[in-house]
């Protein structure tokens, strides 16, 4: 599934993501585990928590990030 369709408060692991240096610099790399904090209405950003920091990811980018749920 992609991040854009994830559920609030669920934990995910990144399987595949666009080749963006900035995503990596923000700590999102293949294998990174994070919590989906919230999704904003009207296709607004998806906010995830990596470690102790929140990152807001555009809906269109979130659609390109493949994730799997972790327990």
């Amino acid at each position: 599934m992609t991040l854009a369709f994830g559920n609030k408060r669920a934990k995910y692991r990144v399987l595949k993501l666009p080749d963006s240096h900035f995503l990596k610099a923000l700590g999102l790399r293949k294998g990174t585990e994070f919590t989906l904090e919230c999704k904003h209405p009207f296709k607004g950003p998806v906010v995830v928590k990596v470690g102790c920091r929140c990152i807001a990811i555009d809906y269109d980018i979130a659609r390109d990030i493949e994730v799997e749920e972790v327990s």
Partner: peptide, 9 residues
């Protein structure tokens, strides 16, 4: 430009 930002503490 798509949004991609770290939300500061």
């Amino acid at each position: 430009q798509p949004m991609l930002l770290e939300v500061p503490n």
